[in-house]
Nucleic acid binder design. Structure first.
Lengths: 369, 369
DNA sequence: TGTTAGCACTCATCCTCATCGAGTGCTAAC
DNA sequence: GTTAGCACTCGATGAGGATGAGTGCTAACA
């Protein structure tokens, strides 16, 4: 637990399969039999949530070994830090290190059943009408299929290229700013407008902003593009800069959609209300999730197991995330949160598949890339 | 429980104080002493959540009566249906009928402390910049002050008068529709546009829609105003009607902001995980809350106690709601959900105050009414 | 040398049973 | 009408014992 792998979160880079192993060199110590036994234990524990005994493994698995032999191996595995004992006469429970190993091995082999793929496809194709509905629907399907809590980080605008900016007067002194990007994602927010701007001017200003800033990133627009254009804009340059800054600020907030938070209550590890409470409070707050999801938005898949989470309230659950694309570029991420004893195989497979589906849908919806 | 008052929810009309009593004539049977004892029991039970005994009341209250006397009165109150006994040798627990009576008496007298008012004022004035942020902030403050779950029904657009409609092309075949109303509330949604409309036309169509429909309700626009204008609009009338229908449909969805759902876990009646689960699932789903909040949007204050809720999963909690105004008209409602044993006095006072604060802020933000 | 059977031992879980005490209802006295 | 007294009820608490799953160790076996 306090060894070097504590903070090394699994990350696969673009080519799936090249795993930056996190369990150090220690898994070299595991021969095939130990590995199979460990896997059998993990599988069983994921299913039952109660400590696994030697007899169970001996009967269940097809290795044809007696409980005594399994016991010897389990004893070794415990010594190596892959198993833990709640108390002397209980079975063994996989440690985080074990999950780590398990996950790394699983990384490239996880597979979905046809039924599950069918289910996902049907439920996602259902309502492709509204862009933001897609993200909500994705989160919903994700939590339904896995029965864990799902999170979707909706695209961050400030790093995409602007296609259009519109300002619509809402009331005295406020306007609704709508930004459409090259990936077709639109976002809007209400901003206050400087006194010097008359509502009637907003239309002209919108057109001007669109004309000057099209193709630039919103983040660049404020700090580099706008200063260069100052002379061209004329007297209202300050006001325009002010508004653009406000727009950039409000747009750079990252939204997360969370669905199925209460699913966690189905798992015995959260039958303790105070534990459930702190989990749910974290999820409701959203701060940590936003952090994790943003962090994860540049690696194809990442898994945080237990104490690999920096947030103390999240240290007995795991977070698995993948990224999704639009126009060939990572624009957001989606993830699943569940107990450390989660069904990593299934979760990873579902996420991989949904990332692909979502990317496809987005590409289709947005037409051009 | 199965008597006439089952579905009669407290409703006060515009003049606060005129209570349409719901407890039938039966409270006439309660003399002052019984009333005081009942109140003492309710107060104690709200505080402790455990059955109240005669000794407690005898000691606590300033009536100077012995436990035996209290017992006699409690026996009467039980017979009248205001108290219940979990089992023979436990104390008494207030029935829903008792809460009903209690709430009706409280209706016009609930009062906040200065500290609480100060707290609310400070936290609401904080960020008045963004319209929708106000609702979110309101929900947050509401749940913080009461320590229950809070709900805010954000204004419904279709019943307000249109000030402006804008259509902004987002991608091939889709556009963002923004509707601004006379109360200054803006809402937007992505809609698909008919093939016959070119993106370049959207600007013209926006202007046309605004011109023709300004001052009308969105709901009227589709069914009465538009048909009358058909001839004026010309060839694209069908396409415009189609789009307007879509806008009306997407705008009439009522949004609810829910904050503090997990607060319910602080109360012992929800220490049972399965109970907590069904409550939280209801809240997450939002369907019932939307229903209650919409229902409540025409009476100044309404209280639903326990089984007065039509949703079975909500029948051991209470929902208190008030409406808020903008431009002199009710435009939405806010509410608090907690265990039936909630602190009605405080909740009602807080809600009344926050309704007023929110209405003031909205009026101020929107400038003109 | 690896595998297995046997056995003593540990310890959480479950059940039972007795005790405790808060609270009631009733009766009789004030 | 109010109160003191008392028997009674019944959930909560906790101790003690049985149960059984599971371990670790040792010795025998292939």
């Amino acid at each position: 637990m306090e060894d070097a792998n504590e903070k090394s979160i699994t990350r696969i880079d673009s080519k799936i399969g090249s795993v930056e192993s996190a369990a150090g060199g220690s898994n070299a110590l595991l021969d095939i039999r130990k590995m199979r036994i460990l896997e059998a234990i993990i599988d069983d524990y994921i299913l039952t949530a109660s400590p696994v005994g030697s007899r169970t493994i001996s009967k269940r698995s097809d290795m044809g070994l007696s409980p005594a032999t399994i016991r010897n191996e389990m004893s070794d595995l415990t010594e190596l830090g892959f198993l833990e004992q709640p108390h002397t006469s209980a079975g063994r429970v996989p440690s985080e290190k074990a999950y780590r190993l398990y996950v790394n091995r699983l990384m490239d082999s996880a597979q979905l059943t046809d039924d599950e793929m069918e289910y996902i496809r049907r439920h996602l194709d259902n309502r492709v009408s509204e862009v933001n509905a897609v993200f909500r629907e994705t989160a919903k399907v994700l939590s339904e299929v896995t029965n864990y809590t799902s999170v979707v980080l909706v695209p961050q605008l400030s790093s995409m290229r602007i296609r259009r900016i519109s300002l619509i007067p809402v009331s005295e002194g406020t306007a609704l700013a709508v930004v459409v990007t090259n990936t077709g994602v639109a976002k809007n927010s209400t901003i206050s407008i400087p006194d010097s701007i008359r509502p009637e001017d907003l239309d002209k200003i919108s057109r001007m902003m669109t004309e000057k800033l099209e193709g630039h990133r919103l983040s660049d627009a404020v700090c580099t593009v706008l200063p260069m254009l100052r002379s061209e804009i004329g007297e209202q340059a300050d006001a325009v800069a002010d508004m653009l800054t406000k727009i950039e600020k409000s747009m750079s907030e990252q939204d997360v959609e969370v669905v199925g938070a209460t699913n966690i209550l189905d798992y015995p590890e959260y039958s303790d209300v105070s534990k459930a409470r702190s989990f749910l409070a974290q999820v409701e707050d959203g701060e940590y999730l936003r952090e994790v999801m943003s962090d994860a938005s540049d690696v194809e898949m990442s898994v945080r197991i237990g104490t690999e989470n920096s947030n103390p309230d999240m240290q007995d659950c795991s977070v698995v995330t993948v990224t999704y694309k639009a126009g060939g570029k990572n624009i957001g991420s989606l993830g699943v949160i569940g107990p450390t004893r989660m069904d990593y195989g299934k979760v990873m497979a579902v996420l991989k598949y949904m990332s692909k589906s979502l990317s496809d849908i987005l590409s289709k919806m947005l037409g051009d890339k």
